[in-house]
């Protein structure tokens, strides 16, 4: 039950885009057509699903105060938590590199359809945000962390697919000239965010 709760919460209530605005840069830049945004969204689910559990292990066994006690009793007082940013970003950068190599080797067609978006994921705020929220919320075990990672990825996926569908439609509408492009996208995202707020307080 706890897993389901975390899953639904991370998709709808704590949606990466509508509640925290994470990953907005690629969200705004890539959401012009549905096809590319499905590709990017899938890649984000994948990378979040890998990096959050890996960062969870890093956090529990290396970074938090007393985490190093598995090496020996004399390390029990070491607190490395100030290193978490640099560790997390290193994990994310190397994981995206790894994912890129694996995808290129085993599925060239997927690789060519994702193209430049795969390496760009390393600097997508949603990925690092996922790891930092995982650290802040102190999930109990690696299962919860994985569910949280995958759920946030799915939330991001839903958001980018929805907005790209809307943007495809409004390309035929008559929008006031100064609002065209960026401005109207911001407003639509804001309105969608208000719609997503109705999920608030929703509990399983």
């Amino acid at each position: 039950m706890e897993y389901l709760n975390i899953f639904v919460k991370s998709i709808f209530i704590n949606n990466m885009i509508f509640a925290y605005f994470l990953g907005m840069c690629s969200f705004l830049a890539v959401s012009k057509t549905v096809k590319t945004s499905v590709g990017l969204g899938a890649a984000v689910i994948f990378v979040l699903g890998i990096t959050v559990p890996v960062d969870y292990l890093m956090n529990t066994y290396i970074l938090v105060p007393g985490a190093l006690s598995w090496i020996g009793a004399e390390y029990a007082n070491v607190d490395l938590s100030f290193l978490s940013f640099i560790m997390f970003i290193a994990v994310i950068a190397s994981m995206t590199q790894l994912v890129e190599m694996v995808v290129e080797k085993f599925s060239p067609s997927l690789y060519s359809s994702l193209g430049i978006y795969l390496p760009l994921i390393a600097v997508n705020c949603a990925i690092l945000g996922g790891s930092l929220f995982m650290q802040q919320r102190e999930y109990q075990n690696i299962g919860e962390a994985t569910i949280f990672g995958i759920g946030s990825g799915i939330g991001w996926f839903l958001a980018i697919v929805a907005i790209s569908a809307i943007r495809e439609k409004i390309s035929y509408s008559n929008i006031p000239a100064p609002l065209r492009g960026l401005g109207i996208t911001f407003i639509i995202t804001g309105l969608m965010g208000i719609a997503f707020m109705t999920f608030m307080g929703f509990k399983l």
Binding site: F18, G183, I184, F186, I187, G190, I194, F196
Partner: peptide, 23 residues
């Protein structure tokens, strides 16, 4: 609420771009 921020930024963009047609 967080979503209103986006609409405020959109208004800033609107204002800026209607002052400067090149943008």
């Amino acid at each position: 609420m967080p979503p209103l921020t986006l609409i405020i930024v959109a208004s800033i963009i609107w204002f800026q771009r209607s002052r400067d047609k090149d943008l």
